[in-house]
């Protein structure tokens, strides 16, 4: 018995295959083009790309050593030699901001790879199994959600001691609950779908269904959520740095730069303005990118 499609169109099975199913590469290029069509998300892409370039090529872009003090040129206003001016120890602010992008990306990356899997695992498990598993996981999530996240992060850093890694752990602990909730809500919509029932009838184990079926369906909205989350992570990291609990001097962290620049703010505005602008720009970029990704990935908007 031949399929009717093959009968109607003999070239269907032989010739036109490459046309019918684009390769993975062209799929990515197509998605990227679609993402860049919207000017807002395109600007998000550009800024995030710039941040990546800054972090990777920091030694090439920076005009000075970010840690080198020059006490003869303290609090110099922006000029050709020092584009963004110098701080209270005569360090070049532009170079410090460029190197600071490494710290920011490091925090974002670590928090995301901690929060993503934890949120996905807890959310899909409580959504799929339901019953007491759901109750236990969701009550734990409720407890974490009911704390103001900055206060909880402060408490963790205070307990663990200040430092970049501890700030990362503190931020991760405060930011997984919304991700878990999202994954649970998504799971609830898929757990009774026919393909999951079919997998159960084939004898698939619960963990196979969770990893091969349900997680795949949760991933798009989770990626969007995590991208939006990155903006919050940057702000929390900056806030912790500002309070002196995140990155420790002399590490060029943007929040810490604002914190130390605060004392000279009235006479030397560039100490605060440039790191502040960097934080604002990057968190805005991640929000725009997240919006763009939602348009691209979320099946409900198609």
């Amino acid at each position: 018995m031949k399929s009717t499609e093959t009968l109607k169109n003999p070239g269907y099975a032989l010739g036109a295959r490459s046309e019918a199913q684009p390769s993975r590469m062209t799929f990515w290029i197509k998605s990227f083009k679609k993402l860049c069509k919207n000017p807002l998300s395109a600007s998000g892409v550009v800024i995030v790309a710039l941040l990546l370039v800054c972090a990777i090529a920091a030694p090439l872009i920076a005009t000075h050593n970010p840690l080198e003090q020059d006490l003869g040129r303290i609090l110099a206003s922006p000029s050709l030699a020092h584009w963004f001016g110098t701080d209270e120890y005569g360090r070049d602010i532009f170079s410090r901001i460029v190197y600071g992008s490494r710290v920011t990306l490091y925090i974002i990356f670590l928090v995301t790879i901690i929060v993503g899997p934890i949120g996905l695992l807890i959310g899909t498990m409580s959504g799929y199994f339901g019953g007491w598993v759901d109750s236990v996981f969701m009550r734990i999530t409720d407890i974490f959600i009911s704390f103001p996240s900055l206060v909880l992060a402060l408490a963790f850093v205070a307990a663990l001691g200040p430092g970049l890694e501890h700030a990362v752990i503190a931020i991760a602990i405060t930011s997984w609950p919304p991700v878990a909730r999202l994954a649970r809500a998504e799971t609830l919509t898929f757990r009774n779908s026919d393909y999951v029932v079919a997998a159960q009838l084939q004898g698939a184990s619960s963990f196979r269904i969770l990893f091969h079926y349900i997680s795949l369906m949760c991933l798009p909205s989770l990626i969007v959520r995590l991208t939006m989350n990155m903006a919050t992570v940057i702000l929390t990291a900056a806030a912790l740095g500002f309070l002196g609990l995140g990155a420790q001097p002399p590490l060029p962290e943007w929040g810490a730069m604002i914190s130390t620049g605060r004392s000279y703010m009235l006479e030397s505005w560039w100490l605060v303005a440039f790191p502040g602008a960097a934080i604002m720009l990057v968190s805005l970029a991640f929000n725009l990118l997240g919006d763009g990704l939602r348009d691209l990935l979320d099946p409900r908007t198609e």
């Binding site: 026919d194 393909y195 079919a198 009838l201 084939q202 004898g203 079926y213 369906m217």
Partner: peptide
């Protein structure tokens, strides 16, 4: 039971993992 019994569903759009 999976070796003895399988099922075909009503909705061909929902029965296959997208």
């Amino acid at each position: 039971r999976s070796n003895t019994m399988q099922m075909v569903f009503q909705d061909p759009y929902g029965a296959l993992h997208p």
